[in-house]
Amino acid sequence: MFVNLTADWCITCLVNERVALSSERVSSAFRAAGIAYLKGDWTQRDPAITAILAEHGRSGVPLYLYFAPDAARAEVLPQILTPELVVKTVNGVLL
């Protein structure tokens, strides 16, 4: 599972979605690996998303979490994404 916590006003989030997360390369990798893609919208400061951010040491978005199969914890991705970074993460390639 890949979790994208974002907000409409977050410029970094919007760029990451356009450049990395919406790319065909990432979409293909998600499909091939059977990755569920979940998006949480923090535009209105939803308390449930605020709690997830705090749990991962963040005070705001973006926050990208990858839950590998059978992993005990989510891997936290950097705030700036590239298609290559996301694909390598999904494919289990150490960065």
Rank of each mutant, 00 (worst) to 15 (best):
M1H: 13
F2M: 00
F2W: 01
V3L: 14
L5P: 04
L5W: 04
C10W: 08
I11L: 10
I11F: 07
T12Y: 01
L14D: 09
N16V: 07
E17S: 08
V19G: 02
V19T: 10
A20V: 05
A20G: 06
L21R: 01
S22K: 11
S23I: 14
E24L: 15
E24Q: 15
E24G: 12
E24F: 10
R25V: 12
V26R: 00
V26Y: 00
S27A: 14
S27C: 08
S28M: 13
R31E: 05
R31H: 05
A32N: 11
A32C: 03
G34R: 00
I35P: 01
Y37M: 01
L38A: 13
K39A: 12
D41T: 10
W42Y: 15
W42D: 08
T43Q: 07
Q44G: 02
Q44I: 03
R45P: 06
R45S: 13
R45C: 05
R45D: 11
P47C: 06
P47L: 05
A48T: 15
I49E: 11
I49M: 15
I49A: 12
T50L: 13
I52C: 07
I52H: 03
L53I: 10
L53G: 06
A54D: 10
E55L: 04
H56I: 06
G57H: 07
R58C: 12
S59F: 04
G60D: 08
G60V: 05
V61Y: 04
V61R: 03
V61N: 02
P62Q: 02
L65G: 06
Y66E: 01
F67T: 09
F67N: 13
A68R: 09
A68V: 03
D70R: 11
D70L: 10
A71P: 10
A71E: 12
A71W: 10
A72S: 06
A72N: 02
R73H: 09
E75C: 02
V76G: 01
V76W: 02
L77V: 03
P78R: 06
I80C: 05
I80Q: 12
T82F: 13
P83G: 01
V86T: 06
N91R: 15
G92A: 08
V93A: 10
L95V: 14
